[in-house]
């Protein structure tokens, strides 16, 4: 045994564990996706046990592709992920620049800002959809009602009364409908992940070249020009990293969707798989394979993009 064999062998447990974790369930998914396999079927009980004699070829894939939920789930997944990415990056950059200056209580503001990131996703969903966004009992409902009451009470006031009598009655928005619940999900995840972006951008801003900035000030560059031509380019790499890490986490977004969307038609790919898996395992598996393909496309793209910078 050479001097370095044992040290190198030390990585095998991790590699083997991950390999099993990845390959065994995935190959079963692949197998199930090619057979007829349902959990309950009174007329065809033979379909309720996985067996090669129920071979269906690409039938499950066809079934999934033809179901109208599938296209919607993919579009919705991408819509939710992309919206979250755009919002967190923009908000993250702005807030990082804002908090990066020294001002009284900066440490406390930082602590306040980072807190949402540690809230567990299930609590995040329950908190937002009930206590904040509920159209009747939540803060949103209370705020809209309060505003309406205020306008109503001012209607009879002298001089300015006419102004408020022309005001519309505001309607609270229900975030439990198909499309609005996607907005609710975007809102709550953006709230949770913007702090993460802020933290990373702020760390990066601290390594910004101050001399270059001073030179720019001497040359009479406006604050906007400094931001646009010095800060934004400097943030290029951290932005790429924030996008990658968030893409990894949000493509498999589940708890928030589950809490906000049960039964109202809003779904992403993981949720659709969960729905299929209540009975039709073949279809669930085929959808799973599609999800793996989608994730791989994103992964290859992202790893290419920043893989090199990670390894430096």
């Amino acid at each position: 045994m050479s001097d370095r064999t044992l040290p190198r062998l030390l990585q095998t447990p991790a590699v083997v564990l991950l390999l099993i974790w990845m390959l065994v369930p995935l190959s079963m998914t692949l197998y199930f996706s090619f057979i007829r396999y349902v959990l309950n079927n009174l007329r065809r009980p033979e379909w309720t046990t996985p067996s090669l004699s129920n071979w269906r070829g690409f039938g499950n894939y066809e079934f999934v592709l033809k179901s109208k939920d599938f296209l919607f789930a993919i579009q919705n997944s991408l819509f939710i992920v992309c919206s979250i990415l755009i919002l967190t990056v923009i908000l993250g950059v702005l807030i990082a620049v804002l908090v990066n200056r020294t001002f009284p209580g900066r440490g406390i503001v930082r602590v306040l800002l980072i807190s949402p990131f540690f809230v567990m996703p299930a609590v995040n969903g329950v908190l937002w959809i009930n206590m904040l966004l509920d159209p009747v009992l939540g803060l949103q409902g209370l705020a809209v009602n309060g505003l309406n009451d205020l306008a109503a009470s001012l209607r009879d006031a002298p001089l300015i009364g006419w102004f408020f009598s022309l005001w519309p009655e505001f309607e609270p928005i229900s975030f439990r409908a198909t499309q609005t619940s996607a907005y609710a999900v975007i809102m709550m995840v953006t709230w949770q992940w913007t702090p993460f972006a802020v933290l990373i951008f702020m760390t990066s801003l601290q390594s910004e070249d101050q001399q270059q900035k001073e030179a720019a000030v001497l040359d009479g560059a406006s604050t906007w020009a400094q931001f646009r031509f010095l800060t934004v380019p400097h943030l290029g790499r951290p932005i790429a990293i924030v996008v990658m890490i968030q893409a990894i986490f949000h493509l498999s977004l589940y708890a928030e969707i589950e809490i906000v969307s049960r039964g109202n038609g809003n779904k992403n790919l993981p949720y659709l798989i969960g729905e299929f898996a209540n009975n039709n395992i073949g279809a669930a598996s085929a959808t799973g394979i599609f999800a793996v393909i989608l994730a791989n496309i994103v992964a290859i793209f992202l790893l290419r993009m920043i893989g090199k910078t990670l390894m430096e």
């Binding site: 590699v15 798989i273 994730a295």
Partner: peptide, 24 residues
């Protein structure tokens, strides 16, 4: 490559292997 591969296992959507995991 091993490190990159490890990271890529994180990207595997959990939902894709939900039923096999339950089954096993």
């Amino acid at each position: 490559d091993v490190l990159m591969w490890m990271l890529s296992t994180k990207m595997l959507p959990a939902a894709a292997v939900l039923y096999p995991m339950t089954f096993i």
